[in-house]
Design a protein around this nucleic acid. Structure first.
Lengths: 101, 101
DNA sequence: GCCTATTAGTTACTTTATGTAAGTAACTAT
DNA sequence: ATAGTTACTTACATAAAGTAACTAATAGGC
């Protein structure tokens, strides 16, 4: 048996529904942030955060900017494609307010 | 460091963002379905589908009905709580149409 | 009664994903 | 020279998911 579900939708699901992706994007909706800030705020391990940020950059959802200060500052921010995920997160927020205790 | 994110939102994320949950709910949006139909349509393994259906039933997102026919028919369907996830899936669909190739 | 078929799982085992904790590189301050 | 900072990476342990074979319940045909 093979799937009858739209391949675009499936692809989006594989991407968005991957562990931590929603939380990372949600966190970045409040503005550009650095590695250690994201790490601390959502409770992800550094190993996986590093992996996810690379994947999300590759997918064009986030952008990585290096500021050669001391110590170095690296900021991650949402691209337009990433920003466009906001309505999804907003709907999750609405649902969670209705149904989670 | 601990999280500053709303606990309801986080809880919802843990639930919804778990692997296969989105696809299972999406599939059930088109009506009640039996085990083998869901299994075949989204490509999940029987072992994990069985596990997820139990979890989703526990969370009150789906409902399990037994029809003692031959062979037995067991139908899974969305509860009101589960139906309310539709706007989230719809937004994912919209995003995927815009951004996935 | 015995064999086959069907659905809805479960079980044992393998592979993949994630977590943990320590280590590295580049730089500055003391 | 030593310690502190950020942003990672690496090696190893644990948890989650995939695979394939097996079971329980029921009915029908021989």
């Amino acid at each position: 048996m093979d799937t009858l579900i739209c391949p675009k939708f499936e692809k989006a699901m594989d991407l968005i529904n991957k562990r931590w992706v929603g939380m990372i994007v949600y966190q970045l909706l409040s503005g550009p942030q650095r590695f250690c800030t994201i790490e601390g705020s959502i409770g992800i391990s550094g190993r996986v955060l590093s992996e996810r940020l690379k994947e999300l950059e590759q997918e064009g959802i986030i952008k990585r900017d290096v500021f050669p200060e001391t110590p170095v500052r690296i900021e991650y921010s949402l691209t337009e494609k990433g920003m466009d995920l906001e309505p999804i997160l907003k709907q999750i927020e609405i649902w969670s307010q209705h149904w989670m205790k």
